[in-house]
């Protein structure tokens, strides 16, 4: 399972794992969107702890979810990113849309 979803009051936590590329992002996107539709969360936490690789497909994944959560007034928090992934995220300016920690 590339995405495990936890829900707590107004918060959806998506634990991502494995490699995020154009191939795997499609499935991850579907899983997270289902949870957003169902819970309309105030906070979406994307946990990158189990992610071993990410290219710019991951940026598309985060931006798309950011837009979806924003529509219901929520925000996005990105957690546990390694240095490589952080570098790609900074290059994309994701730190201006979401909290990266």
């Amino acid at each position: 399972m590339p995405v495990i979803i936890d829900t707590e009051e107004n918060t959806v936590i998506a634990h991502l794992s494995g490699e995020i590329d154009h191939h795997s992002a499609k499935d991850m996107r579907g899983d997270i969107d289902l949870a957003i539709d169902r819970c309309r969360p105030e906070k979406l936490i994307l946990d990158f702890d189990g992610v071993t690789f990410m290219d710019s497909s991951g940026i598309g994944l985060v931006m798309g979810r950011y837009k979806a959560v924003k529509l219901c007034g929520g925000s996005v928090i990105i957690e546990n990113t390694g240095s490589q992934i952080k570098k790609v995220m900074r290059l994309a300016g994701l730190d201006r849309l979401a909290v990266i920690r």
């Binding site: 992002a25 710019s56 497909s57 940026i59 994944l61 931006m63 994309a92």
Partner: peptide, 11 residues
């Protein structure tokens, strides 16, 4: 439409 960020060459 495929959620491509347009960052391939920049990366």
């Amino acid at each position: 439409e495929e959620e491509r960020a347009g960052l391939g060459f920049a990366v």
